[in-house]
Design a protein around this nucleic acid. Sequence first.
DNA 1: TATTGTTATACTCTATAACTATA
DNA 2: TATAGTTATAGAGTATAACAATA
Lengths: 176, 176
Amino acid sequence: MTDTHAGADPDADGVEPLAPRQLGAYFALMEAVSLLQHGVEQQLRAEGDLSYVQFQLLARLTDAGGPLTMTQLADGVVYSRSGLTYQAGLLEKAGLISRGTFPEDERAILVTITDKGAALVRRLLPGHVEVVRRLLFDALADDDLHHLGDIMSRVRDHMRAQPPRSAAPRKRRQAR
Amino acid sequence: MTDTHAGADPDADGVEPLAPRQLGAYFALMEAVSLLQHGVEQQLRAEGDLSYVQFQLLARLTDAGGPLTMTQLADGVVYSRSGLTYQAGLLEKAGLISRGTFPEDERAILVTITDKGAALVRRLLPGHVEVVRRLLFDALADDDLHHLGDIMSRVRDHMRAQPPRSAAPRKRRQAR
DNA sequence: TATTGTTATACTCTATAACTATA
DNA sequence: TATAGTTATAGAGTATAACAATA
């Protein structure tokens, strides 16, 4: 039985192909989140002139309950330091955050959300929640919600723990 | 009992706040997919010099089993027509797709994946699958996989059926 | 030396509006 | 009139590398 395309046997490459059910879950996940992200971004842009990344940064500061350093703030939201500097520059110029020194480590910068920033988050949150409910939760039973939260928390933690950029088995770079 | 922040009662806005469990699921979902997307993009860029959008377009053509019109191709992948024209231009210049006329409707353009394009997808797929497995499926039991696929398919279909851009309850545009 | 953050720069991508051509 | 696609253009965002300052 020589099943060369999609079975449980390793490929010629030695890579196990994903089972159809896995592929289906992966694609559904990616497309659904893409749609969700698009919807959410529209709302934030229309009602508050913020990108999702900017909203995330403000939200993070909000529920941290106090100032964060740039590095702490970036974690999980932005994937390059200069990208964060850029976004922080925009938020500061808009008066939504302020940057100050951190006495305990003079290299670091402490980022604080301003009253204006906090007010903006409060103003945007209901509409945001509304969109998320309409797009996401209206399609979910209580049971699904429980599963989804459980699964994605686990996945998120798993990914956070992954070796960031080294440890790539081989670098096949063979582009073009 | 005047619970003004996060209970089961409508807000001053008349908007039901999300329960903590819902918020948790939403944030976990968004962050996990952001990490997944980032990982996958790194692999595609490194091994095939493709963005995720470009890969999606080629993949779509692949499993359509034949040519698609621009509009069909865009569906769910790209949110503006000009964006697709741009990406199709890049893919064509790289020799991965070709564009031809569609006799049955002279307004339309038929997009066909070339042999080179098909070969590229075949070359990238194992590494792609590998990344998705490492980041996503390694954190999931069989049971989780089943749930996830089921849930996200339902969510995706729900979102696809949403009124695209009109029907926004009110336009509060009050930016800045 | 390693880490924090910024700057300069180049590039990719997206969206809007105006336009052409066909239905 | 409506639809399919392109073009021009402008803006937002990202990443890399070089840099300065502190640990």
